[in-house]
Amino acid sequence: MRLPEPRQPHRHRLNRPRWEPRPAGPSPTYVIPSTGHYPPAHSEREADQAPARTEHHMFRYLIRRLLSAAVIILVISAITFLIFFALPSNPALLACGKTCSAARLAQIKAGMGLDQSLATQYWEFLKGFFAGRTFGDASVKIQCNFPCLGISFKDDTPVFSTLMGRFPADLSLALGSAVIFLVVGVGLGVVAAVKKGSWIDKLAVTGALVGVSLQIYFVGLLLMYVFVDKWQILPTPGYVPITRTSASGSRG
């Protein structure tokens, strides 16, 4: 079956860059001529006007993007917040201990602020992120400063510092994968584009599709099984701090 002709009306607009490209004129020169004077005024103005317009557009673009990013973060935080409450979880009960009386449970619930309305709790969370919050109202105060993501009901440490504790591992994974996707991904992409329709193009596109469709928790286990358990080419993965040695760091 043939696909219907794709409609084209927006194609041109979509392909146009959002801001004007730098015009192909004489580029400004910063070499001071032997005369000791700056280049002629007209050429300087001509060269500078276009970038000024570009920067203006760029600025607006950035503002727009930052604003939409902030809205998205807000929406995501609200949804995450709601999901937490939609799930059958009860932090007060988990914190309470094995033999938990109703009175004790109510006391801990109030202590955690879980007796407040959802809207109040979310507002406190948002406000606390910027303004900081004080926990431990019933005992010794624990200050949680900006950016305050709350404190863990399990170990009473600020969530932000827990995240930061894990950050080096995230960073090393991100850097490692960036190297791979930049070199292999972009490289294959370029080759596929240049040799359109060739077997290498098809292979790259198929590979990309498979990679996108199958999730890491599936592919990861599969790769571990093949490389570690079956062929025993690689050791069992474990995290080695990136600061230690680069060779063992790439194992993780």
Binding site: C96, S101, R104, I108, M112, G136, S139
Partner: peptide, 26 residues
């Protein structure tokens, strides 16, 4: 008895007399 001191056994609450409304020493 404090609502911040969570997770522990409940024997103090269960056995001690006159604990109604008590919320810890803080």
């Amino acid at each position: 008895f404090s609502s911040d001191i969570t997770g522990g056994p409940g024997y103090a609450q269960e056995f001690l007399a006159d604990t109604t409304g008590y919320t810890g020493p803080f």
